[in-house]
Amino acid sequence: MINYIKESYNELKNHVTWTSWSEAQRLTVVVAVFSVVLALAIWGVDTVFSGVVGKYFEWIKS
């Protein structure tokens, strides 16, 4: 187990290419913006669908 941890640390330290801090910040902003846009799109579809289902059930009652 200790050997595995040492080898994993060595792999991360010497063989992984990390992005620069500015690139990581830029990508974080892209993910945050995309998440907000997707959440708004899902909210819009849900609102429309809820309205359609509500109207359908009102129509069936009549």
Rank of each mutant, 00 (worst) to 15 (best):
W18G: 01
T47I: 05
I5A: 10
I5P: 03
F57Q: 02
K55H: 07
I2M: 15
H15F: 14
S62N: 15
V48C: 01
E11A: 10
L40F: 15
A41M: 13
V16N: 08
H15Q: 04
S20M: 03
W21M: 06
S50R: 06
F57H: 11
N14L: 05
A39S: 06
S8C: 10
Y9E: 05
N10G: 13
V16F: 14
H15M: 04
Q25I: 06
V33A: 04
T28M: 14
S8D: 02
W21Q: 06
E11G: 11
E11Q: 12
N10D: 12
S35C: 10
G51N: 03
V33P: 02
S62C: 07
K55F: 07
L27Y: 14
K13G: 00
I2G: 06
T19I: 08
S50E: 13
L38T: 03
A39I: 07
V36H: 05
G54C: 10
I42M: 02
S8F: 15
D46F: 08
D46Q: 12
V53E: 14
V31W: 11
G54F: 15
F49C: 01
V29Y: 10
Y9W: 09
T47K: 07
M1T: 09
R26H: 13
S22Q: 13
V30S: 13
V29K: 13
Q25F: 10
V31Y: 13
T28L: 10
T19Y: 15
V53I: 13
D46G: 07
L40K: 02
A24F: 10
Y4L: 07
W59D: 03
F34Q: 06
W59K: 09
R26K: 07
S50N: 14
K61E: 08
W18D: 05
Q25M: 11
D46L: 09
E11Y: 11
V16T: 09
E58W: 07
I42W: 00
E7L: 07
L12A: 15
S50M: 09
Y4H: 05
L40I: 07
S50Q: 12
S22E: 08
E7Q: 08
A24T: 05
T47F: 15
K55V: 01
F49Y: 10
L12W: 04
L40C: 09
S50I: 01
I60W: 14
V29N: 11
I2C: 06
T47A: 02
T28A: 09
S20D: 08
T17W: 15
T28S: 12
E58T: 08
S8V: 10
V48I: 15
H15I: 03
L12Y: 09
M1W: 14
F34N: 12
G51P: 03
H15D: 01
W43I: 14
G54N: 06
H15S: 02
W43L: 11
I60K: 12
V33H: 03
S22I: 09
T28H: 14
V45R: 10
T17M: 05
Y56H: 01
V36W: 14
W59E: 02
G44M: 03
G51D: 04
S8I: 06
E58V: 05
A24N: 08
E7P: 02
